[in-house]
């Protein structure tokens, strides 16, 4: 599967295939959807089991659940302020869903659903609708002053307001492309170097020796990908909370 013939096939890992037999095929239920359900199930299980015992001295699972909770809680209140508590459930689900999606993708044979722009853009679109709705709900018509910095020369406003609007509209795009591109790039690199290992490994004694180099790179890459998995989930969540701060406080 790694290297068909001599060509490196790095992109077929992102192909969607229906699962669950006939039923899955007829409703378009792919392995991507299955992994989303697994991610949601794992997050739910972690929080349910982690908080079930409510021990004063937390066990491993409870410590993990509490660490995740407090990490996002601190992000929400630190970035947005006191109002951040209202958005904590949203931020927490978003962060954990993306994090578990990224981490699930690191397992062998698993699928990374965050490597599809359709998924990341849907998440970013939800964020975009939320920040716009929150801004409008809190500030009403005054929210539109967000696009016009105060004390601005009216002549310049003709230029600045469209730029600000374009900048605002580019948020969901940059948010989704960042996550998607990072995951795709990482998994393509893993696949390419893994293919090198296989191709060199089948090319005689000298090849086997040569295969050690890409193998070493791949080991390092796996570690790096775990870092990226956490980092991108964090970046997505913290940018969302920065946008929410802007929506709540306008400036």
């Amino acid at each position: 599967m790694a290297a068909e013939g001599k060509a490196i096939d790095a992109l077929s890992q992102f192909a969607l295939t229906p699962v669950l037999g006939k039923v899955g095929a007829s409703v378009g239920f792919t392995q991507s959807n299955a992994h989303m359900l697994i991610a949601v199930g794992l997050v739910t299980a972690l929080m349910m089991w982690g908080t079930a015992r409510r021990a004063v001295v937390p066990g491993r699972l409870q410590a993990l659940a509490e660490a995740a909770y407090e990490f996002v809680h601190e992000m929400a209140t630190g970035q947005i302020g006191e109002e951040g508590k209202r958005f904590f459930p949203f931020l927490f689900s978003l962060f954990m869903f993306i994090l578990f999606g990224n981490l699930l993708g690191m397992l062998p044979y698993a699928f990374t659903f965050t490597s599809h722009i359709a998924v990341t853009f849907t998440l970013a679109a939800i964020v975009f609708v939320l920040i716009t709705a929150v801004g409008l709900a809190i500030h009403g018509w005054h929210w539109f002053s967000y696009f016009k910095p105060e004390g601005l020369n009216p002549a310049l406003a003709v230029l600045v307001v469209p730029i600000e609007i374009i900048s605002y509209l580019s948020r969901p795009i940059s948010l989704s492309v960042r996550l998607f591109a990072n995951m795709v790039a990482g998994h393509v690199m893993l696949k390419v170097f893994a293919s090198f290992v296989v191709m060199l490994g089948t090319a005689g004694v000298l090849g086997v020796l040569g295969a050690a180099a890409p193998l070493a790179i791949n080991v390092a890459l796996v570690g790096f990908e775990f870092l990226v998995a956490f980092l991108q989930a964090y970046v997505f969540a913290i940018l969302t909370s920065i946008y929410l701060h802007d929506a709540v406080h306008l400036h």
């Binding site: 374009i166 580019s170 795009i173 492309v177 960042r178 591109a181 990072n182």
Partner: peptide
């Protein structure tokens, strides 16, 4: 990477 994404996404919009 962030700078690149920000530039390109605004240009795309």
């Amino acid at each position: 990477f962030r700078v690149g994404v920000e530039l390109v996404s605004a240009l795309a919009v």
